[in-house]
Every structure is written in C-alpha cells, then in structure tokens.
Nucleic acid binder design. Sequence first.
DNA 1: ACCTGAACACCGTTCAAGT
DNA 2: ACCTGAACACCGTTCAAGT
Lengths: 238, 238
Amino acid sequence: METPDADRDVVEGQQPPSARVPLSRDRILEAALTYIESDGLPGLSMRRLGAVLGVEAMSLYRYVEGREVLLDGVVESMVASMEFDPDVLQEPENGWQDFLQRLAHGIRRVALAHPKAFPLVASRPTEAPWLRPPLRSLRWVEYFLAGLTQEGFSDTAAVRAYRAFTSFLLGHLLLEVTMLGADLGPLDVIEEDDDASTADYPTAHRMRHALRENHAAAEFEEALEELMNRLALIRSES
Amino acid sequence: METPDADRDVVEGQQPPSARVPLSRDRILEAALTYIESDGLPGLSMRRLGAVLGVEAMSLYRYVEGREVLLDGVVESMVASMEFDPDVLQEPENGWQDFLQRLAHGIRRVALAHPKAFPLVASRPTEAPWLRPPLRSLRWVEYFLAGLTQEGFSDTAAVRAYRAFTSFLLGHLLLEVTMLGADLGPLDVIEEDDDASTADYPTAHRMRHALRENHAAAEFEEALEELMNRLALIRSES
DNA sequence: ACCTGAACACCGTTCAAGT
DNA sequence: ACCTGAACACCGTTCAAGT
C-alpha cells in the first residue's frame, strides 16, 4: 500500500511564498474540512494543517485563535453551507411538511457530504444549551421557528416541534455517517469475520444478513414521515 | 478561584507503593471514567491518569495497550454496567413494550450518570457497522433481538425495530447529556446574555423562555411512547 | 512481577525576530 | 503586514533498567 499523502504538502509548499494564494480564515477552514474528510479528525494538527497550506503552523494563529476555535469554525462553515442550498432556503410555500422535509434533506446532504466531520456538528458544545445540534445557530433556529409559526404552529407547538425535529435528525444522521465513516475508515480493518463472530449469539447469528443490509435512506424517509405525523398532532393539540 | 485539583494526586501518591492498592485494568478504567466525568475528556492524558492513580504514566501500559484502547475500555465498561441493573436484565414478562421501556430507561440512567463520558458511547466507532450505538455489543444486540423474537416479532420486524430503537435513543440521549454537560461544564461560561443575543431574531426572541425550559424527561417518555406505536405497526406489518 | 527514567517524536501555543 | 525560528510545556509511547 502506497502513501500518496507524502507529496501533497509539496504541491502547495514548493511554490515560493510570493506566488501562493494568500492565507485567509476561509481557506484555512476549508483545508481543515478536507483534511478531516480524508485523514480523519485525530490526524489533524495545526502543524500538519499548516504543511498542507504550505506554511508553518504558527502562521495559522493570525487567522484562527487556536485549535478549538478552528474546529468550531469548521462546524460553523458546515452548518452555514446550507444557506446556499436553494432547495432548503425558501419560506414555506407548500405547507409545513414540505418545509421541514426540505430542511431535513438539506441537513442530511451536508452530513453525507462530510461523514467524517459531521460528528463534530453533533457533539461540539453549542453556544447555548437550547441551540440544539444539528441546527446549532440562532439563525437556523429562527428560520425553523418562524417557518412553523407562519404555518399556524403556536409558540409552544413550535418549540416542541423544534425539540422533536432535532433529536430525530441527530440520531438518524449520526448513525448513518458513523456507519459510512467506519466503512470509509482505515482499510486495514479486519475483513468479515461474518459468521464466526456471531456464533455464540444465535438470534443475531440468524439475522446476520438482515443486520448487514443498509437501508439508511429508506429508514430516514420512513422515520421522517412518522415524525411529520407526530408534529401534526402537536400542531393541533397545543 | 482555587485549584483543589492540586492535591488529588497526592492523596493516592503519598503512600509508598507497597501500601497502595495494586493497579489493575478495572481500576484504571474506573479512574479514567471518574476523571472524564470531573475534568472532561480533553483533560484526560495518560500522564495525568497515572498521577491520579499514584503511578507514572508508563505503568498504565502494562494493563491497557494505549490511549485509544483505554477509551474503548471506558465505553465498554459503561455499556456493560447495565448488565447489573436488575430492572433491565430480565426476559420479557409483561410484553415487549415493557421489555423495551425497561431497556431504554436503563440506558438513559447510564447516560445521565455519566453525561461527560456518554458522548463516547455515541461516537466511538463500533466493532462492526451494524453494532449500533448505544447498544454496541453483540451481547446487547442479541438480548434485544432475542427478546423481541420471543414476543412474536419476525426476523425482519426485529431488525427494523432494532434500527428504530437505536436511532431514537442516540438522538434523545446525546442531546440530553450535551445540555447537561454544557451546564456542568466550565463555570466561567458567559452568564445569561439572555435577551441580548436573540435581539435580531424576533421569533426565537419571543420564544426564548419556552426554549430554555428543560422537559427532557417528559419528552423522552413521550417520544418513547410514540416509538412503541411505530414498533407495534412494524410488528404487525412484517 | 511490577514500576520507573530517560528518550523520541510529536503536540499547541507564545513571542521576538525576520522580510 | 505577514510569516518564521526558537522555545516552552505538554503529549503518547518504547525500552532498557531498576527493585
């Protein structure tokens, strides 16, 4: 197995500083995101990120205050990327179900586009405890609540919907990207002990093929549909 | 603000080695768990963990193969701790709803007992992609599937229930402990910018009080009830 | 058998110095 | 204005050496 990583830093690093694209916060965040996606979060260090950008680690501190802030920035940029998704960002026109479904699919697209980085969206502490992942910004919370209000949700119904919607998304997407990330992960994984491992567990053994099937997309749709029914109840009740 | 941490290592460290409780894998895992719970995961290093146990970091490598394995062990011990919960571990007697509810509550108790460490249960890669958090072990998956089978679930219905059950738990519990962890977190947190922060977001501003309320327990029960209804459908359908 | 000291390679971060 | 070299305190981990 070759190590094609070795010359990646050179690609940018070999040009003299004057000829390089100047550093910027956005360029750093973008590089960090693609680094995480290709090499995993644990491998990301300020020094290696600097190398990718053809610069010493210390230069990064001109643009980001430190590693923690860098990761917060990466999360923020992922969440913000939905703002340019034309399918997501439009007021409700075809009812609140359509509104929420477009939003849910938009977030799912972001998660699937960045399976290795998405767990950060799920687990980094938010600015306030009521800014729940994966919506994490006041901006998106406002968008969510305003949309539902406009569609006839009372204040308490909208807040209940917000809570139900976020836990739904978090559970489904985190599990989906975890399964993806594991598959895309280190390739030296133990290959398919399949039957052997489940030998002592008869029920799991019997269902081992069904357990391995991946119906993530269909499950997501189904559970989303179910959530909509629940929200319809909440809407009419409170 | 004082630093009461300073003498904690001494408490164990001051006794001569001969008088100390001998090191063991379990003792190390337990110390790691309480360390995470009191100081947070980022603060946990092999060196500091050694100090807590009155020992040099290098000694730990006799019992755990490295830091990654240590964290896996902590997760494993949390998941395994449910096996000693008498309310959880008994075959279904009062129907599958009761069976699943006891299991769900048991996992929730573990999560709430270790809010800072539980995110590890959610995000550490499992041994196989179909061993879904927060059930993570073949043991628990077998327990789950066997229980449902015994209660009249077909194989495909049991597997579908397994998927729905795990994403439900993951979403709810991760959000719940994240909110807890944030509150228990560093106390130098910015205190209550309350109204100020939401000023530019009228809907969120209007609902700011409702948004701050914590109904985690009630929401959990409600969503669990809803899940049961969905599983009843799955049971009768497939 | 169990623990340690010294060492290595790697971190995040600061700051005075270079251009 | 922007980047770097050198330095500091801290990591995980290995291994020969101590008791």
